[in-house]
């Protein structure tokens, strides 16, 4: 693919992620903070999000498998997950976390387990989308192009 084609693909793909609710305006904030002095900012923050999320999902899975579920712990983990997902603009994950906390408050085990499945699914989905987006960005830069940020707003 030539650079212009890749750039058009990037614009189309990014727009679809916003349109389908995987990402919200906060992700655009991250993109705004990336510049020549920090060309990998988005990729860095996104990979921190992946590490954080996978640790939290493992912890949540463990806590919810126990005989006596410590709902305070569940809530603390979900609170963290909600914070990190909203900081990077992973909108679906964030919304799952809001529902998750409500079930946690009610100490509804069934509801919590359902939410855990939902948040896992949405997390891995947005992870693959973000990975694809960043791969595309790296290809554009490797081919000597720049990320056409300004095209997103038009």
């Amino acid at each position: 693919m030539e650079v212009g084609q890749m750039q058009r693909a990037w614009v189309e793909y990014t727009r679809s992620l916003f349109r389908e609710g995987f990402l919200d305006a906060q992700f655009q904030q991250l993109q705004l903070l990336q510049d020549e002095s920090n060309p990998d900012f988005v990729a860095e923050v996104v990979s921190l999000f992946f590490e954080d999320s996978e640790r939290l999902l493992a912890d949540l899975t463990f806590v919810l498998e126990q005989q006596n579920i410590d709902f305070k712990k569940v809530d603390a983990h979900v609170h963290q997950f909600k914070g990190s997902s909203s900081s990077i603009g992973a909108q679906r994950v964030k919304n799952d976390c809001i529902a998750f906390r409500n079930f946690c408050e009610e100490q509804n085990i069934e509801g919590c387990l359902r939410c855990l499945q939902q948040v896992k699914q949405d997390y891995y989905l947005v992870k693959s989308k973000l990975e694809a987006l960043i791969r595309l960005e790296q290809q554009i830069v490797a081919a000597g192009g720049s990320i056409p940020m300004e095209e997103l707003s038009s």
């Binding site: 510049d35 860095e44 923050v45 999000f49 954080d52 914070g83 990190s84 900081s87 990077i88």
Partner: peptide, 15 residues
């Protein structure tokens, strides 16, 4: 306490 949020606020302030 969140590393992601530290990165973010650091970048925001430096920008």
């Amino acid at each position: 306490d969140s590393l992601i949020d530290r990165k973010l606020i650091e970048r925001l302030l430096k920008t």
